[in-house]
Design a protein around this nucleic acid. Structure first.
Length: 562
RNA sequence: UGGCGGGUAGUUCAAUUGGCAGAACGCCUGACUUUGGUUCAGGAAGUUGCAGGUUCGAUUCCUGCCCCGCCAGCCA
């Protein structure tokens, strides 16, 4: 039944319109079933997330179901560890598929039986020619193809050859099974497409049981039909395959209540690449540290970077589903990440580039526990105690000896608030032999406990700090765009990897954080106040990945006047 | 070159049967603020690819043109 009331933040789209029409018309007995069919030859990326959210989202909104099917028809590129990784990623994104994980390879026996059926009906034949010859005979966009000399082979001979192909009598590439459709068809996809090719390769699930493997076209629609899919949603480039998808279903003993294919535009995101080929090349070329490198647009990369799955889902639902290929700006993705993290992250103080601040009139050896709010957006997050003492670390960015206009942090003679602690006024600086400021001296106003002045006087800035004797060392990894160009793929004649950002990661060692950071567990997410959102690395303790920075108006002002 | 799918703010998408072109992100102002964050208020931003036609009225219907994407793997 249609779910007018189901909550959705995204715009309407043609896929949902179609499903609603079908449901209203009582097609498929009112049943709605979709599927997410990745090929296990790599890990999932943000583009897949769009597809996952669409398929599972539609199923959910219409009270239907969604299966997860590994499209594993090409043993040479597929691996079991990719299967496990994909399952893990889909679950992490927050979706549960209907029943067990399905595999196109589950259907190999049925597919083969149907192939024999097609042969018996004179609708498929074994071609002895090599790939090059077949390709040359396919014709062009304006030229029809020419018939293979094997096209009119007797049924018995075809059947015999097909069985011997399956039995392993022929080497790779020696023969193929082709559908017998129309070599002059205006759509080249219908010019006797290949159904089976010979590959003496071990398959990650069926081992060496088979040495002939179905092509995508021969497997996909039938797999949909076998699973009871009602709406088979795929990307735009399969548009030309739809007539073939239907031709197979038309010529096989498949119930009238069969799946239909719909195509939508795949997702692209600026400053990255989103094809498995390119992502594999990034990994294999050593440009990143693996599929889960925080710079990768893979789900595992984003997970490690600290992107919450909720943010990915919100993004995917927001961008809509259309038939125009385009590119979303990363900034949009990041805004969803910030939005989620702002609401949910506990705040902590950490100083990435430390500068020593000495509070001259604060008693040596004295320590106070200052109460700090954990998350101003969420009162239930409570407060914590942070130690305050005479010597503090502050960020180098928060002090300027010769401040430009509009800079209102610490500077000689200036007063600022130390977050949740006291007002301090800069009195002096200490330099090293080269003249660089290595220490800032200040005095605090004991009346401003908690950061409030009883006389009502204001300061223009509040800065974060960490007590030197209590500080815990951390390492921060600051990430920037993987590619400097917004559209690395769109420069003709240029290798997208030419635009790899040489500074996509900056490792900041020697950073200091408040003691409570030692209590965090791997993958925990926090906001470093005034700096950004960070995520604890899952492998190395004390390493924090910057998920995304805070919006920074000061950086804009500074950039404008620079 | 043939076929198919598309063209609406910078970007991604909306716009009931033809009825004042909207939103989000980004950008700019201002207010608030113990994060230069968040929040709030406001603003700039469009010849709806182009040219005709039908109509009181066209993003929407018709015709022609232009531009973009996809298709000639035994990849998916």
């Amino acid at each position: 039944m249609s779910s007018e009331s189901s909550p959705r933040s995204g715009p309407p789209d043609f896929v949902r319109d179609q499903v609603r029409r079908d449901v209203d018309a009582g097609s498929h007995g009112g049943r709605v079933q979709l599927r997410f069919p990745p090929e296990p030859n790599g890990y999932l990326h943000i583009g897949h997330a769009k597809s996952i959210c669409l398929n599972f989202g539609v199923a959910d909104e219409f009270g239907g179901s969604c299966t997860l099917r590994m499209d594993d028809t090409n043993p040479e590129t597929e691996r079991a560890d990719f299967v496990a990784g994909i399952e893990e990623d889909v679950r992490w994104l927050g979706f549960r598929w209907d029943g067990p994980t399905r595999y196109a390879s589950d259907y190999f026996p049925q597919l083969y039986a149907w192939a024999e059926l097609l042969v018996e009906r004179g609708l498929a034949y074994v071609d002895d020619q090599d790939a090059e010859t077949i390709s040359a005979q396919r014709g062009g966009f304006t030229e029809p193809g020419v018939d293979s000399p094997y096209r009119d082979r007797p049924v018995e001979e075809n059947l015999d050859l097909l069985r011997r192909m399956r039995a392993g009598e022929f080497p790779d590439g020696a023969r193929v099974l082709r559908a017998r459709i129309d070599m002059a068809h205006p759509n080249p996809q219908l010019r006797d497409p290949v159904l089976y090719r010979i590959r003496h390769a071990a398959h990650h699930r069926t081992g060496t049981q088979w040495c002939i493997y179905p092509t995508y076209d021969w497997a996909h629609g039938q797999s949909d039909a076998l699973e009871g899919t009602t709406h088979s949603v795929c990307t735009l480039e399969f548009d030309a395959h739809r007539p073939l998808y239907e031709w197979f279903l038309d010529h096989l003993p498949i119930p009238a209540d069969r799946p239909h294919q719909y195509e939508f535009a795949r997702l692209n995101v600026t400053h990255t690449v989103l094809s498995k080929r390119r992502l594999s090349a990034l990994v294999e070329g050593g440009h990143v540290d693996g599929w889960d490198d925080p710079r990768m647009p893979t789900l595992r990369g984003m997970r490690r970077l600290g992107y919450p799955p909720e943010a990915l889902r919100a993004f995917c639902n927001h961008i809509g589903v259309a038939k125009v290929n385009g590119t979303n700006e990363v900034e949009l993705l990041e805004s969803f990440v910030r939005d989620e993290l702002n609401r949910t992250s506990t705040r902590r103080m950490a100083v990435l580039r430390p500068l020593r601040l000495v509070v001259e009139n604060y008693p040596e050896g004295q320590v106070e526990q200052v109460e700090v709010v954990n998350n101003p957006e969420d009162p239930s997050a409570g407060t914590r105690l942070v130690p305050f003492s005479r010597e503090l670390w502050i960020d180098r960015d928060d002090f300027l000896e010769d401040p430009p206009a509009k800079f209102y942090r610490l500077a000689p003679g200036r007063e600022v608030r130390l977050r949740a602690a006291y007002f301090v006024r800069c009195t002096d600086v200490v330099r090293d032999t080269s003249g660089e400021v290595v220490e800032v001296r200040c005095t605090y106003d004991p009346a401003t406990t908690g950061g409030q002045a009883p006389d009502g006087r204001k300061v223009k800035a509040t800065i974060h700090w960490v007590s030197v004797p209590h500080a815990v060392p951390i390492e921060a990894r600051l990430y920037d765009r993987l590619f400097t160009e917004p559209h690395p793929d769109a420069h003709e004649g240029r290798d997208p990897f030419d635009f790899l950002n040489p500074n996509s990661v900056e490792v900041v060692g020697g950073a200091w954080a408040e003691p409570s950071l030692a209590e965090l567990a791997p993958a925990d997410r926090v906001q470093f106040e005034r700096v950004g959102y960070f995520c604890v690395d899952t492998n190395v303790p004390g390493v924090f990945h910057r998920t995304v920075g805070l919006r920074d108006d000061w950086a804009k002002i500074r950039g404008r006047t620079a």
